[in-house]
Write a protein that binds this DNA or RNA. Sequence first.
DNA 1: TATTCTTTTGGCG
DNA 2: CGCCAAAAGAATA
Length: 155
Amino acid sequence: MTYDGVLSTSIGHLGLLLKENQLVGIHFLPTDFSISESQNPIVTKIITQLQSYFKNANHSFDLPLQLEGTPFQQKVWKKLTEIPMSETRTYGELAKALNTAPRAIGQACRTNPIPIIIPCHRVVANTSLGGYSGQTQGELLQRKKWLLQHENAQC
DNA sequence: TATTCTTTTGGCG
DNA sequence: CGCCAAAAGAATA
């Protein structure tokens, strides 16, 4: 699989998937993945903003996203982007805000095509840390923990 | 249309 | 205090 751009971050390499000059997906890549420089100005902008975020969590993304999904997912994802920095919200809270069930939030979070930019890592379960992309333990959770710690350190 | 996936909640040892 | 089972909503094949 080829990516439109590969970015090296503190939690590993990130692969950017673009479509019509719009970001449609981000994949976590192994650290030994070869970094490919981008000639597309949009890719450069995305990489710049991502690096800025990883350097300083107090950075708001301003990127052209193409959220392909059901209206419910788009609603949830948009709500996720409105979560302030260094703030975590539980599935129950989001469900109450959207007038739906917490499990539906988890579904939308699991099918989130663009991690990091859509702060699905700020969504945690009520009792435990919750899951991340359907994984309740493993490398994904470590990245989630890193991101939360990164944002908490800023405030 | 049926299966799967997600978290929350309640009860029991 | 920790573990197990059931429930409700949505996505996917």
